[in-house]
């Protein structure tokens, strides 16, 4: 069985990925395994919670859209997709990658789908963080009253 932490990481990556990026990588990869839906793609809502004062009791902040589905490959491997937004194709592709990552095609799936997705996400995050860092205030003292 695959390491749970590792699976959490790739499912999260697939959930956060822009649907168009995953779609492009998936079609280019040409993996196209045979599969059947255990649960056809379904759009729903998840109630997002926060905590009072960031650390106190939970409260309901509002919902977000999520699409989920489950697939079974010809060899019996089951893959789950839970993705942000209303993308049925996105959820299906996420479930298929999840299934492939549990079998013999793991290395290929990682190389052609997950690694490029991770690199794109890292680049997006770094670009925002770098812009934020450029807006950090450097204070300098002009005059001190009590001196």
């Amino acid at each position: 069985m695959t390491d749970k932490t590792e699976r959490k990481a790739w499912m999260g990556l697939l959930a956060r990925a822009p649907a168009d990026d995953l779609d492009r990588l998936w079609s280019e990869a040409g993996l196209a395994p045979d599969y059947a839906y255990l649960r056809p793609p379904e759009v729903g809502g998840v109630m997002v919670r926060g905590r009072a004062g960031a650390t106190g009791a939970p409260f309901n902040l509002g919902e977000m859209t999520v699409t989920r589905c489950a697939v079974r490959l010809a060899d019996g491997t089951v893959g789950h997709g839970y993705v942000q937004g209303r993308g049925k194709r996105h959820a299906t592709q996420a479930a298929l990658v999840d299934a492939l990552m549990q079998g013999g095609t793991k290395d290929t799936a990682r190389a052609v789908v997950l690694t490029p997705l991770q690199e794109a996400e890292d680049a997006r995050c770094t670009a925002r963080a770098a812009r934020a860092a450029a807006t950090k205030v450097d204070f300098f003292t002009m005059m001190r009253g009590e001196d």
């Binding site: 998840v46 109630m47 997002v48 926060g50 905590r51």
Partner: peptide, 8 residues
């Protein structure tokens, strides 16, 4: 409703 999240 699929469920509720962990507090962010």
């Amino acid at each position: 409703r699929f469920g509720a999240s962990h507090p962010v």
